[in-house]
Amino acid sequence: MMKNNEQLTKEMFQKVHDNFEHAEKINRPSVSYWADVWRRIKENKLAMLGLILIISLSILAIIGPYINGYSYYEQNFMEKNLKPNAEHWFGTDQLGRDIFTRVWYGARISLFIGVMAALIDFLVGIIYGGISGMASGRTDNIMMRIAEILYAIPYLLMVILLMVVMEQGLWTIILAMTLTGWIPMARLVRGQVLQMKEQEFVQASEALGAKTGWVLRKHMIPNTMGPILVNVTLTVPTAIFAEATLSFLGLGIPAPQASWGTMANDALDSILVGNFYQLFFPAILISLTMFAFNVFGDGLRDALDPKLRK
């Protein structure tokens, strides 16, 4: 080949990548990635069950309160503490309100709060924890100490202060919930990043000149997604019950509006007099939601990371 005495000139060489984004570019079209994900989820029966459950719960949250002709606030003392029957499918509560209607009305609030809180905790936690873990050293130290301070300050004090300065409402609850809710998530992400950072493939990527953000996005997060997703799905029920606590403190949605958390709370004493059904319906719906998010989360994670498939 060199016989022609061709001179190797500088022009003949081209920088492979002046842009790190090309560093690991796979030059085959990845046309079917999302389609592939979707195909894999569809194959996973449990994940599909979870998805169907989430969709049906959402639909029922929208139409449920209008199905049997009662309103969430109407009281009828003559019909209080009725067991489930043809008129009141899920029975009635201590003030004679229809539990079926209230439970679906509550689904709106609880599902919204649960999902929003999980989402915000997830985003803030990933960003904060990711930066802290990648930076390490001084930045990591200071960021973690700030998180510690925030976590150690009595949460109730902050809630009472919020209650004084803000209006009652959904967004206030979500703010109150995410005030410190992101911290465990951030610590989890940071721990994962610290561990992952020392793995060979990450170091290889860094050696190839990939920038921190890239490494974080393309290697760290996907490879630590499992525990993070577990944490996100767990935030949902925690948030649903936290809402009840906050409502009880006066921050939440005012009575007579219902949420699963407040309904479960109010019904707690009904166990003492044998009215288990008042607790059963909100509790079972919270569990179902939890189940749906869990299996769907698992399925999603598997689908995103083909390596885990068996």
């Binding site: 009472i160 209650m163 004084v164 009652q168 009880f248 403190l249 006066g250 005012p254 009575a255 007579p256």
Partner: peptide, 8 residues
């Protein structure tokens, strides 16, 4: 309805 903590 507005419920608040006792002291508030």
């Amino acid at each position: 309805l507005e419920n608040v903590e006792f002291q508030v």
